[in-house]
Design a protein around this nucleic acid. Structure first.
Length: 809
RNA sequence: GCCGAUGUGGCGGAAUGGCAGACGCACGGGACUUAAAAUCCCGAGGAUGAAAGUCCGUGUGGGUUCGACUCCCACCAUCGGCACCA
């Protein structure tokens, strides 16, 4: 069989026949399978693409065999820095290069022979799509979830733009690895923090990898505690947040962040110079230096004292850069005895360290002691446990109006403006009379103009485009200017899964509620774990928002999430041209795409990934030829020989075990085991083939079931073989073979009766057909007592029959 | 420091608490062949033994159990994430 040829042939035919059309009238059995869409980077499809798209396509084909009406759309995340940087490098306009790249990638994706629903293709840089990105912005704005604020932002000097927290990796830009600067700039934010609690709670009800859930929990960073108000002598209030209200009696100083606006107010005249100098220095320090836990703590005294609301004690206030201005109140109470950082700080500046917690047994432990324990030196709270004291102390603070329960989240609001050209324009107009005005829905989209000067220079390049920037106020009609920034591409991708079902079939709204509620949420989402705290969090936020404004009935966009592992080059690093000597095409043109898929499935665990090794791919081709040989041979068998003995039982066992395990392993993306079962079945067929007399009907059945099972991992091969054995087109319309449990119940079960740790009897019990696991009922009670012969049963243990002999002997 | 994952032959990797190493690669042997390739069949964790067999084996040490790769506790190693978040 010429695999390369047949692949061309069938790809063409399937496309002509539109074999995988999604039936939008039959939504009862719909299955929405989605792979994270990609950037049209212009590179050729590489092995990583095959790994991602090819294998999850096989999963989709498997669901089809099971009778699901699979919706598997494909599109492109076409805005954004990669596309733009590529354009800057080549001198070709982003729009042109993007369009070209999409055409190239689309062609290759089609060659992959995947069952994508191309009629729903979606491209985020087309106005047909980004109209709704802007609509979304306006809705968020109208619901008070968008605001503009002068804020310290992450600024990448190389990309010349602000980037989100999620895009900063160890203080460096995730794209170009330049060191990120901190600037104060006017910024647009989405108030994702309003959804922090719901984003946390929602994790409990979705089928996602625990790892990813914990990454998100970590990122959201819920911290339950209390706020406590400290007042200066002249009545300025300093509120601290603490999760350890039980240590309030141990406070010996307060620390305020250098950037906290209150800092300036607090400083006493004679300390001003020192403090100003310190603040200046602190803001100059780079992120790494400042947030490193190993950097020694520094700080200066402000000259101000505050009163501890519960003890009445006077404690000094320091400025120190180990306190973060943007978290909670930006002020921290210093408890040297029970916090490692405060301990270091107190030691360094000779501040008092006051023990207020002993261990659970009341023993004094070495300081700093940061565990929970029992209170001491805390007046009426002495003897309480930390847990009890946290409640009692806050209750008392509430009574005197100087404290309250408070929950904080580490999650920050989402910074969404980018000072770049190649993105979705922010639909905002600045009017001299009306101020900030969102563009009315009926005026959308605000079309991104085709400009030639799109070099990023720290401000939105659109500001230089007069035709774009000058407009009139939608409210009063006065001359006004448009916002020059564009949106973060994560906004584009935060709702695309909801737009896919109607990407071209719904012009007057983002989607029609009734229809999308039937198709969404996504039943299975496949993509890399690197988006755990970015795209996957944003999408959840936006979906919750759309539910809140009545557009959806559900609030989690992805029911099930699966992360493929990464496929690595021989050096153990991420695949690149340098470490992979061969491209996907090399394999496709030598062995065929089916052999490539099968090999990828079999040779590594899909969820773990690993180092790509191509030895073995030629054997995969040989394996396919081995299948072809026996199928061609068995297809020619004639007559009605119906022998039925142990050999036939063994073959039936192999078939049914494969049918069962294959499905189970496909379901969990354990493709390596699924393919192994196919190999076992083929081995069993060869073994049976050695029989003089063969049960012809059984042979034909096994052969046909095998070919059907081959359809997901080797679609072209299975189709060709199906035709070769004289079956009707198409194998892809077949049903998943029926599993017959009775054929694999070779093990009956015995109960071994144990007396004084010796097994004295074993009783055979009947197999229960309705349950293919093992526990059954005892057939005869008399038999038990007979065997026991008056002894007392200490214990009965259920073991598979094949093991009883081993235990007894 | 905190959180999470992983640890099984030369390699990729299997095992609802029940014969550890399925399936495959690499390896060895046989059949076919003048020969090679291809194909088909067989072998293979380690130690010991002529062999049947016996002993040891799933990172380490304990525990639960008739029985542990699997469950529990402690530890070691590797990888990933977060990290002065009060």
């Amino acid at each position: 069989m010429d695999f390369v040829e047949i692949e061309k042939k069938w790809n063409k035919k399937w496309e002509e026949d539109n074999l995988y059309r999604f039936d939008d009238k039959n939504l009862k059995d719909k299955f929405y399978l989605l792979e994270m869409f990609s950037y049209p980077s212009g590179a050729n499809l590489h092995l990583g693409h095959w790994w991602n798209f090819g294998l999850s396509d096989s999963f989709g084909r498997f669901k089809r065999l099971q009778g699901f009406n699979v919706f598997q759309p494909m599109g492109f995340d076409a805005f954004g820095l990669p596309a733009e940087n590529y354009a800057l490098k080549t001198g070709i306009h982003p729009e042109d290069s993007t369009k070209h790249n999409i055409a190239v990638m689309e062609k290759q994706l089609r060659e992959l022979g995947a069952t994508f629903n191309w009629e729903n293709e979606l491209v985020t840089c087309e106005s047909e799509y980004y109209k709704w990105t802007q609509w979304l912005f306006v809705q968020l704005y109208k619901h008070g979830l968008v605001y503009q604020k002068e804020a310290p932002v992450n600024f990448c000097p190389h990309c010349n733009t602000i980037i989100a927290n999620e895009q900063v990796v160890n203080g460096h830009c995730e794209r170009c690895e330049s060191e990120v600067l901190h600037k104060n700039m006017k910024q647009w934010f989405f108030k994702i923090t309003d959804y922090a609690e719901r984003l946390l709670e929602g994790l409990d009800n979705i089928d996602w990898p625990e790892k990813t859930k914990s990454l998100q929990r970590n990122w959201i960073g819920k911290s339950v505690g209390a706020e406590v108000d400290f007042y200066t002598e002249d009545g300025t209030k300093l509120t601290v947040f603490t999760s350890r209200a039980d240590t309030l009696f141990g406070v010996t100083f307060l620390v305020i962040a250098p950037e906290n606006p209150l800092t300036e107010k607090l400083v006493k005249e004679e300390f001003k110079k020192a403090v100003d100098e310190y603040v200046l220095q602190a803001t100059k320090k780079d992120e790494i230096e400042r947030t490193s836990t190993t950097t020694p703590k520094t700080g200066v005294f402000t000259g101000t004292y505050v009163i501890n609301p519960i003890t009445g004690e006077k404690v000094p206030v320091f400025v120190a850069d180990y306190v973060i201005a943007t978290y909670a109140t930006g002020v921290v109470m210093g408890v040297g005895a029970h916090d490692a950082r405060d301990f270091d700080f107190a030691k360094k500046y000779g501040l008092e360290i006051k023990r207020v917690i002993c261990d659970k047994n009341g023993k004094e432990q070495e300081l700093p002691y940061t565990e929970y324990g029992k209170l001491v030196n805390s007046e009426e709270f002495d003897g309480l446990s930390s847990e009890e004291a946290k409640v009692k102390i806050v209750e008392k603070l509430e009574k005197i109006g100087k404290g309250r329960y408070k929950t904080n989240y580490r999650l920050r609001d989402w910074s969404v403006a980018r000072q770049r050209y190649w993105g979705c324009p922010i639909p905002i107009v600045y009017c001299p009379h009306c101020g900030i005005v969102p563009v009315p829905e009926k005026h959308l989209p605000v079309v991104l103009p085709h400009v030639t000067d799109y070099k990023p220079e720290g401000e939105g390049p659109l500001g230089k485009c007069e035709e774009f920037i000058n407009t009139t106020c939608p409210v009063c009609g006065a001359k006004a200017r448009r916002e020059a920034d564009t949106m973060d591409t994560f906004v584009d991708s935060s709702y695309y899964m909801l737009r896919y079902p109607q990407s071209h079939y719904c012009d007057d709204e983002i989607f029609s509620k009734d229809y999308v509620n039937q198709i969404c949420p996504v039943d299975c989402y496949v993509g890399g774990i690197e988006h755990a705290t970015g795209h996957l969090l944003y999408s959840r936020f936006i979906t919750k928002f759309l539910k809140d404004i009545g557009k959806l009935d559900f609030e989690e966009p992805f029911k099930r999430l699966v992360h493929q592992g990464m496929i690595l080059g021989s050096d153990g690093k991420k695949m690149s041209k340098r470490n992979s000597s061969k491209t996907a095409d090399d394999y496709v043109y030598t062995f065929g795409s089916d052999a490539l898929r099968l090999h990828m499935m079999f040779s590594l665990k899909y969820l773990d990934g690993g180092i790509w090794a191509d030895d073995g791919i030629k054997h995969m081709k040989a394996f396919m030829e081995r299948i072809e040989r026996i199928c061609v041979k068995w297809a020619k068998l004639e007559g009605d020989c119906d022998v039925y003995g142990d050999s036939e039982k063994a073959l039936e066992f192999a078939l049914n075990r494969t049918i069962k395990d294959y499905a189970e392993n496909f379901e969990t993306f354990s493709f390596n085991v699924a393919v192994a079962r196919l190999m076992e079945l083929v081995n069993a067929m060869y073994k049976y083939d050695a029989e003089e007399k063969k049960n012809v009907a059984l042979c034909k059945k096994v052969m046909k079931d095998l070919i059907v099972l081959l359809a997901p991992p080797a679609p072209h091969f299975a189709e060709e073989l199906w035709e070769e054995i004289g079956e009707k087109y198409s194998v892809h319309n077949q049903k998943y073979p029926q599993f017959d449990a009775s054929k694999v119940m070779l093990d009956t079960v015995e109960i071994a009766v144990q007396v004084n740790s010796k097994i004295v009897a074993r009783i055979e019990v009947g197999a229960d057909d309705s349950n293919d696991q093992v526990l059954q009922t005892v057939k005869s009670d008399e038999k038990v007592s007979e065997l026991l012969n008056g002894k007392t049963i200490v214990k009965e243990i259920v073991v598979p029959k094949r093991l009883v002999n081993l235990i007894v002997k």
